[in-house]
Design a protein around this nucleic acid. Structure first.
Lengths: 363, 363
DNA sequence: TTGAAAGCGATACCAA
DNA sequence: TTGGTATCGCTTTCAA
């Protein structure tokens, strides 16, 4: 069948008509080869080939089957983080592996900062499930994600989407506390924290913020964990400097470090909420001729491969494994609801960038 | 409407019935707010909210509209390369940026080595277009990709999919030749090439292969480019050692280098088909106490950020930009067919890892 | 401003 | 083994 002289794309019907069989049969030729004679099937396939039929339309098939074989992954605006931070990359790889094992693809959805656009993108995403990771928790489009009614796995705030959502994460606060205690035990008192998303917006520099009111869950928990350690040791919290990094990039880590280093009362320890930021801080030290672990102690978070190379003290958390588990929870959810909420173990890895405070107490 | 006591997911129809309006109207409330009174629209949205309607089903909408707002990206088995090689990551980022600007997502499709599975995955992929990059050219599922009849952009073999496919790439062979000439001009005669996918399969080690018969286009062209340089200088090709890397990973680069270094007639220059492999070669040199550029010259390909850090001599080619162009070609194809085939410029970046041959000629 | 009708392209049950 | 029929959920003219 053609229309107006233009060649219409072939469909199941085209093939069926051509051969005088029913669409069901043609469909079976593709989806259930055992349901028809090899002979007929061969004829159908040959005709399809001849007519340039590209096989069953995936969208139509998905509509009918109620399944699209895709997991939606929401990413921060401009994808910078997902493709830049080795930890996130490893996480994605694990997710992709789990998905791939089930012939499922990953739909990478770049969530625009603009709310309306964000909602549009989310509502157009044809996916069987969503994986939420490194997403600004406060984005209005996340509400839509929940409304979509598909399974969700989250990696950050365990309570963000209610008890129905699966969860694969770590105890962020306890992990940070361990780092903080390590630093306190080394005698440090002049401490700076370099963190991404303490405040929204693109500023890198010192900010003042209430740790109990940070909007980004992960940063909030980690900062609170640091505070737990400090106050537990009798160290007044208002003595700690909070430095916001405009992005989770190495360069921002270096820029942020400047605010802790280039002043008379220089910090003797800088805690970062990611290894990537910490590597930037190390860059800043190098430029200034300071030795990490001796002049200034530095800690990261994640334990990416480069952390070991640079001797960075950090928290090791599962990466590929964590992504893989997230994917499995989505695709093969365990019967037991408790099995859908996983808190993974972490460990403190002490390397060369932390050492005893060598300066004399200043106040 | 319910069925058998189970709550059915709400659809447009559910809302329409509830309010006694037609589905068209409900549809308009979502897709064309200007087509109905604000009042009615508000009532519809409120009812939808109350009934837990998640908004128009993306799959159904895509079927109807004939567009899914997604670009399919085929990736090598296990995604290792896409997420591991900084060059590929940058390319993907550019692609994602172009897509995102048009509210389009990226469907990352992991192409299983298994042919049947590969075909299944490709035929189920609901996408408006395909981007082919770093894909094993010989995979049978690629045939299906072409049959799908959607726009394609390729980044490797410009002739792989006929003249209809868009193309954004570089002159691989000429680029490699420049590297080869650089090395030859420095007086090197004992040369090894470390390359990914010279032969298929997981072996890392010396292989013998005819440069004119390599199955992977990119490696083939680069190896032929090296040969052009050597034979142009009167250097017999059979003196060059070909070392296959099992994967495009730093570790494999190091492993491959061993085959060129741990022998009496050690190579004085090692050319790699990617920076990632070259960094591995540098690792291998370090372990052996050899100095790059003095004891052994090393070259890479791509000019990833780490290349500069390590002083690697390499070919610089556009990365983010190249991905962005690929996305734009797919989403906003220029009228002029010639505009859909872009060969981008590259440059030779000479740094510290190459230097004059300091050993005396051995034969 | 609202609605009726006609698909979009395929799948799956149940008969024949 | 093959075919008929009823959807899947939505969009889009075209009329009213």
């Amino acid at each position: 069948m053609q229309k107006g002289g233009a060649v219409m794309a072939a469909t199941l019907q085209t093939i069926a008509d051509e051969l005088g069989v029913s669409r069901s049969t043609v469909s079976n030729a593709y989806s259930r080869p055992d349901q028809l004679s090899p002979d007929l099937r061969a004829r159908i396939l040959a005709t399809a080939e001849r007519l340039g039929y590209s096989g069953p339309n995936p969208t139509a098939r998905s509509l009918r089957r109620g399944k699209v074989n895709a997991i939606g992954v929401l990413l921060t605006d401009n994808l910078s983080m997902a493709f830049t931070d080795p930890y996130a990359v490893a996480y994605l790889r694990g997710l992709a592996e789990a998905a791939s094992a089930r012939e499922t693809s990953l739909l990478l959805i770049n969530l625009p900062t603009d709310e309306a656009a964000g909602r549009r993108v989310v509502s157009n995403a044809a996916v069987d499930a969503f994986c939420l990771y490194c997403v600004p928790d406060w984005h209005g489009a996340l509400e839509l994600v929940r409304q979509r009614g598909v399974p969700i796995v989250i990696g950050e705030d365990p309570n963000a989407f209610g008890p129905d959502a699966s969860y694969v994460g770590i105890d962020e606060r306890a992990a940070a506390r361990r780092l903080g205690e390590h630093i306190v035990n080394l005698g440090h008192r002049d401490i700076a924290i370099v963190a991404h998303w303490i405040v929204d917006g693109g500023v890198t520099g010192e900010v003042s913020a209430d740790p109990d009111a940070l909007r980004y869950y992960v940063t909030g928990e980690r900062v609170r964990g640091f505070r737990d350690a400090f106050t537990g040791a009798g160290l007044p919290w208002d003595r700690v400097r909070l430095i916001n990094a405009a992005a989770n990039h190495r360069e921002e880590g270096a820029a942020g470090a400047a605010h802790a280093l280039d002043r008379h009362d220089r910090a003797t320890a800088i805690l970062c909420t990611s290894d990537v930021l910490a590597l930037g801080v190390l860059d800043a030290l190098r430029v200034r001729g300071l030795t990490p672990g001796r002049d200034v102690s530095v800690t990261g978070f994640d334990d990416i491969p480069d952390a070991e190379v640079h001797g960075l003290t950090t928290i090791r958390q599962p990466s590929v494994e964590r992504g893989r588990l997230a994917g499995e929870l989505l695709l093969d959810p365990p019967e037991d609801p408790a099995g859908r909420r996983l808190t993974l173990p972490v460990s403190l890895v002490v390397r060369a960038t932390t050492g005893p405070n060598s300066t004399k107490e200043q106040s």
